[in-house]
């Protein structure tokens, strides 16, 4: 169950251009969290909380790692926080990736930009469950790349940049067939990327993690809805998602 609580900042570091990695400590949140869920983080002095996906969970040490891009004054304030300070969060929020019921032997992860972090926590979880992981990660340029070595330690990883400064020059969808055989796929990134990935991987079971500007983050305000093949015709990204069966949502 999600709670509002204060999490203690353990480390803050810039891991790529305008990209901050923050490790937060909280015994309950770290125990309850699942890969693919998010924390709804209060940026001091701001009205709306920032939904930030969970990049890694360390239950033994009671920590959660989040990564976020510095976009405006809210994320700038967050980035300026120092170890020992407290961050007000509501979490763990949303439904994460379904890993346990996955009978897959190999999973393909396709991430774009700030959509990459939740896939890292998933990769760790898949590895723990003995499922093979192949990853295709897209970034704007070499300066924006993070977690390359971490993904490489878990499985074969293909890098893609928009400008060709690292790995394949182009889009993640250019090299989907390079990954070879896999049973399931998981993807997180901008909507046009998710659409293209889903289109190319049609026929494979897959899961998409969506992002959208949120209001309440608890399912009450209906700011972050997506059209879906459900009776109501929609799903709430904050509470029904952010992870959805690829065939369920209409992008």
């Amino acid at each position: 169950m999600k709670k509002r609580t204060e999490m203690t900042v353990e480390t803050v570091q810039e891991v790529a251009l305008d990209t901050i990695e923050m490790k937060l400590n909280h015994p309950y949140i770290s125990t309850a969290a699942q890969p693919g869920q998010f924390l709804h983080v209060l940026a001091e002095g701001h009205t709306l909380r920032r939904p930030i996906s969970i990049a890694s969970i360390d239950r033994e040490y009671g920590t959660i790692t989040i990564l976020f891009k510095v976009m405006g004054s809210g994320t700038k304030n967050l980035a300026a926080m120092k170890p020992g300070m407290e961050v007000n969060v509501v979490g763990p929020s949303g439904n994460g990736f379904t890993v346990q019921e996955t009978p897959a032997r190999t999973a393909l992860l396709v991430g774009g930009g700030i959509g990459v972090p939740p896939l890292y926590g998933l990769a760790e979880e898949l590895q723990r469950k003995g499922i093979g992981v192949k990853s295709i990660l897209g970034f704007q340029s070499r300066a924006h790349v993070f977690y390359k070595e971490k993904f490489e330690r878990i499985g074969t990883t293909y890098m893609v940049t928009d400008d060709g400064t690292l790995g394949h020059h182009g889009l993640v969808t250019d090299i989907l067939d390079k990954a070879g055989r896999f049973d399931h796929y998981y993807s997180c990134g901008p909507i046009p990327m998710l659409k293209a990935v889903r289109e190319q991987l049609r026929g494979h079971p897959g899961f998409l993690s969506l992002e959208e500007r949120m209001g309440c983050g608890t399912g009450a305000c209906l700011a972050c809805v997506v059209r879906a093949e459900t009776e109501s015709g929609y799903q709430k990204i904050c509470t029904d998602g952010p992870v959805f069966d690829a065939d369920e949502v209409i992008l």
Binding site: L48, E212, R213, M214, G215, C221, L222, A223, C224, V225, V226, R227, G233, Y234
Partner: peptide
């Protein structure tokens, strides 16, 4: 259904 997203800022 309401409006398209984004719906908040």
């Amino acid at each position: 259904f309401g409006n398209d997203t984004p719906r908040v800022a």
